[in-house]
Design a protein around this nucleic acid. Sequence first.
DNA 1: TGGAAAAATGAACAATGTTCATTTACTTTG
DNA 2: CAAAGTAAATGAACATTGTTCATTTTTCCA
Lengths: 205, 205
Amino acid sequence: MAIADRKAKEKDDLKALILKGAKKLFIDKGVEQTTIRSIAESIDYSVGTVYLHFKDKNAILHSLHTQGFSQLSGDFKVLYNVSDPMERLKALGKVYIQFASDNPDMYDLMFTLKAPMEFLDAINEEEWNEGKATFDVLHTTVKQCMEIGHFTGHKSEPLAFMIWSLVHGMCSLEISKRCTGVNIKDPEHIVTNAYDEFIKLIDKL
Amino acid sequence: MAIADRKAKEKDDLKALILKGAKKLFIDKGVEQTTIRSIAESIDYSVGTVYLHFKDKNAILHSLHTQGFSQLSGDFKVLYNVSDPMERLKALGKVYIQFASDNPDMYDLMFTLKAPMEFLDAINEEEWNEGKATFDVLHTTVKQCMEIGHFTGHKSEPLAFMIWSLVHGMCSLEISKRCTGVNIKDPEHIVTNAYDEFIKLIDKL
DNA sequence: TGGAAAAATGAACAATGTTCATTTACTTTG
DNA sequence: CAAAGTAAATGAACATTGTTCATTTTTCCA
């Protein structure tokens, strides 16, 4: 069945091509400008062809969101070298913030926009594997910190969620432009400065 | 000029009526379902009339966002009784979280959605007065905490932003449905539990 | 009362996601 | 190798959006 194999490959290739076009548009112009028509046009296919490979726009955005998580977990790889869990925890936040700063639209898609979650709902998928895996990296690190005596008296899971919220909140406020216009003295570096305050805080414990 | 006065009043009344209809739709059905047509229909006016009182949809959403901030600062009033700034700080977060939990769509509009900020851009307004005033409540409280000896070695502004990020991040993750599906044991109460960990944390200092 | 000014209307436009009858290309079969 | 069948691709068409603006209706005042 060599022909069927080739056809399957062609199908996968086209799907990847659509995603490639979608990603470029998404990065360059944002979600709203990433229309099905513009995606189709960018790869010289018709609108209908896009729908042969993706159920709807949410499915495309979900695929992009998954690519974003791949990239983020790639970025996390530098942390494997950090043996002290407390140092790793601090560095984890830095990497996370850097990712959000470098890829604001992708971050928005991964952690704020409805599309990826609506896609999961549509296919009756309860679990958000991408988010779960990412949270596990943090949660595991927090647990390791506790094993060597840090964060005594805390519960690892809510504590990890608190730390995630802390960095996510900063990135989210920045991306949704809620930092400028609030009369912060150094809005350019407010996220970094605020994260430094957090590090100061846990260093005091 | 009694007639002109009455006319001005009628104009204001109609503007308020449009906002009332918009708010009901917004609360009941969310942003996407709050279309100009549905707003017009809900108050028995034509589409064009809505545009006589609001430049565009962003202007309507900005007005709703401002109403949300009025409500939030109203909720903050219970804190006036709390004299100890540290206790006030802790309670502030609780009130904030409760507001977000009770009014998720309004919270999204106030702190995440682009519309209100795009409106400010459109009218060349640099400052985000609603956000600024709200942040000031927090920042002032943090400064008062520092005056009585808390948070030594910290800078009030980045620290306040850090705390804002912390509570905003939790609310934001909850509202954008990033908590469920991450295998958190008690997703129902994760926000409250995580905030309790934060309180534990600062109580240790 | 009649004409000007203000207010209100809703048809029309462009852009969007989505569908599906039709066309085109390819594969298999007699 | 030609015909028939299957798979892939097309793009016109539909519903829904925000938005505009020529037209109509209402209100006001001289």
